[in-house]
Design a protein around this nucleic acid. Structure first.
Lengths: 247, 247
DNA sequence: TGTATCAATTTGTATAGACAAAAGCGGGTC
DNA sequence: GACCCGCTTTTGTCTATACAAATTGATACA
């Protein structure tokens, strides 16, 4: 049993996706759809508002609603904590702390993070192993002012990524994905060749304009990839499945 | 002037993001919020439904609404057509067709695409140049059954990515990002060293379960990266800015 | 000609009321 | 105990109505 709301939404969506209504096409006025579907204007309005929120149509008072101009090629990636992700995919995961040290921010790093020089940080290096093979090198900075409890946490039983995710809410995240060649030290740790292509994910998260953490995760290119699906059709971005996969 | 709807939405959102209400916390019932905000239940309901659609809360009849369990580390990337993207960033863009050939699908490629062997395809290879330096190598397959007009299109003035975006609506896209080392031919075309780390984007788009196109775009790793921001706070995924940037 | 004003149209937001659907709870029966 | 039934609570959807805000188009006027 589908609701009227849903029926209107999907009918219009299908006509847009199917190319029957091209970008720029004016879709019927609310009162016309009220006639067509024999329902109240509120119901039509909610359906059209939902389509507008999704970016499929744009609406202007007194003018009407129009099929949005261009399909943007967008993808949604769930970038998860390594351990969670490995477990979801049914792989073994373990990790080893290589370095754990409290420092103060030097000028260059501070500028790079957009924070004040001299702030206290926890620097963590971590090697992740999946199914017995080294899979990622994690280099992390945690701002101790934002996460005071990290000062006494050993991270012996819970990996830092997971610990932070459960511990600190964030309001903004930035991700950068790069391809880099492994230097000698990285290659040795990841048990791969020097110069091997590596997929690097850099993530910085903020809470209310203060950096919480900055992390660089380096994967050997022959053992990792990022994948993401996008359906313009889907209800919410929440019914996506985990997207990062072992290759 | 903000609407009541918006005020409710943002108040609750702020309490979740700020960590005042932890995951699992039961947020007030609709009738309680009606009291608190002195508005009708419809208004409260719409605000809570919007939060649920966004994945910040989950709702269950008779039980209540709860702060969603775990923050997923998600990012939204707009992966645009190379020319559009370069122009937006204020760079010059040109391209050259290296190969344009109509073929039939061999068994291996067909299996890889999830399509039938023997289907007619247009194979296109294309070198993109940004600000005078080679920036991407594009290897594309277009299913002629889905895009018959591609048969006679020369792609001399409009690059294939842009042409397809304007021409054919799609209902699903899949993206994969990889790091690979350049082989000799690729390195020569991209004017980089053999073995250099390259960032590869693979994209396959479908319309109603039929493949429209499959493309592999190889960027030299020292000249390219993908970047994406995610604000759990934002209204829609549509007010995102272009995300892929020249490094 | 240009400009201010007004009316009409369309979307945006809100209300109060109604009933349906899901799910927990308790009571009775076997 | 297990099972069934009905009561209650909470969310889900819909209606009819109302007024506000934005914008267009027409009209009046300098």
């Amino acid at each position: 049993m589908v609701s009227i709301h849903q029926r209107i939404f999907e009918d219009i969506e299908a006509r847009i996706i199917g190319g029957i209504w091209q970008p720029g096409h004016r879709i019927p006025f609310e009162h016309e759809l009220v006639q067509e579907y024999q329902c109240s204007r509120m119901t039509v309005n909610k359906a059209l508002s939902a389509l507008a929120e999704r970016g499929m149509i744009t609406r202007r008072r007194k003018v009407g609603s129009f099929v949005a101009s261009r399909q943007i090629d967008r993808t949604v990636m769930d970038i998860q904590d390594i351990s969670t992700e490995a477990e979801l995919a049914g792989h073994d995961h373990s990790y080893r702390i290589l370095l754990r040290k409290i420092e103060t921010l030097d000028a260059a790093t501070a500028a790079h993070l957009g924070e004040e020089k001299g702030a206290e940080i926890l620097r963590l290096h971590c090697l992740h192993t999946v199914d017995g093979k080294p899979n990622a090198l994690e280099r992390r900075i945690i701002m101790l002012a934002m996460v005071p409890s990290a000062r006494t946490e050993s991270f012996a039983s819970v990996p830092p990524g997971k610990w932070l995710l459960d511990m600190v809410p964030w309001s903004k995240a930035r991700h950068v994905i790069r391809a880099v060649s492994a230097d000698a030290a990285t290659a040795r740790l990841l048990e791969t060749a020097r110069g091997e292509a590596c997929l690097t994910l850099i993530r910085q998260t903020w809470q209310m304009s203060h950096t919480v953490t900055h992390v660089e995760i380096i994967h050997p290119g022959d053992r990792f990839q990022f994948a993401g699906d996008f359906h313009p059709t889907e209800r919410g971005i929440t019914d996506q499945l985990p997207r990062r996969s072992l290759s």
